[in-house]
Design a protein around this nucleic acid. Structure first.
Ligand SMILES: [Mn+2]
Ligand SMILES: [Mn+2]
Ligand SMILES: [Zn+2]
Ligand SMILES: [Zn+2]
Lengths: 163, 163
DNA sequence: CCCTAATTCAGACTTATTCTCAATAAGGCT
DNA sequence: AGCCTTATTGAGAATAAGTCTGAATTAGGG
């Protein structure tokens, strides 16, 4: 399900029910499976600011008694990212992270390139820039993320280890 | 070599000579090698808007008669990214790209999540936001990138292939 | 209830990136 | 100019994130 606001850009709605997820999948000729429902449920109930890798999600599901294969997890998060339901984050680690894509919780990341410590921050103008830019090019906006690479205070003080 | 401007944030200077690169390496107890000099030279003379993967760089160097190992290339681009000399771009492909980090050429990416087509755009406020945010947290800014995920006009029209 | 095509699952596979370690060489010092 | 320490390189092995395959399952339309 898609919601347009007064500024005329489109963004996924904040919360999916079984029905709205099913409707959005069916729009594209896809199906609602228990696996997809369960995975979306995890992300919808994740604490604000938490994000999961595919492996994280796999373990979390297993701990809750859901035996969903890694292949399905990889396929599902990619699918939901391409639908605009999830955000795909490229943080400092060597794997992707995912979180729900909700305007209300929209935020960005400040990453230390040495120790990988990451701080989240909000900024109202970023989404406006993303909106303006994508509209100008005729793109349909799904998500926009500002990623800042920097050196944290603690790493500025420490001696650099040899690469 | 580091340059501070009137706004008090720090950013690598636009152009490196053998001496300035050497100085910046020595500050950290590192060495200037022919390989590092050659690799930086490639990036400094790359057409604006071009970016290279490690493999791209390896082939380009080979075509110019420079036999630098892939290991060294991976190590060097990562090193230079952590120094703020290069930007590490996470585009839609499954490998990283690098380009020189110069305020003058500072730009961002609008990516189609379906066909991976990428458009570069400039925006003056993004760097200001990155500056303000990193300063507020006491971080030393190296680079900031706005990445917009969206669906391009052509992909909006086409039928969706099954994932 | 049937049928078709989408989806799942297990496991093989791919491949970007990192690691290891012996050989080399940068650069500080005399 | 030669010496010494240690950072760096290079070749190849290793790692691991993510994708692909093919048979079995199942969603959902009729
Ligand atoms: Mn992680
Ligand atoms: Mn590429
Ligand atoms: Zn740090
Ligand atoms: Zn496209």
């Amino acid at each position: 399900m898609i919601v347009s606001d007064d500024k005329n850009w489109v963004m996924s709605m904040s919360f999916y029910t079984e029905d709205s997820l099913k409707a959005e999948l069916h729009e594209r000729g896809w199906r609602l499976t228990p696996q997809r429902e369960i995975i979306l449920d995890i992300f919808q109930n994740l604490a604000a600011g938490k994000h999961l890798s595919a492996e994280d999600l796999y373990e979390l599901l297993k701990s809750e008694g859901h035996d969903i294969s890694l292949s399905t997890i990889y396929r599902t998060v990619k699918l939901m990212a391409r639908m605009g339901i999830l955000r795909e984050l490229e943080l400092a680690e060597d794997h992707k992270h995912y979180e729900i894509n909700q305007p209300y919780h929209h935020h960005h990341h400040l990453i230390c390139v040495r120790c990988n410590q990451t701080i989240e921050f909000k900024n109202e103008s970023v989404l406006k820039i993303g909106d303006k830019t994508s509209k100008k090019e005729g793109y349909h906006l799904l998500d926009c993320q500002l990623t800042i690479h920097a050196v944290c205070p603690s790493c500025q003080r420490s001696i650099l280890p040899v690469s």
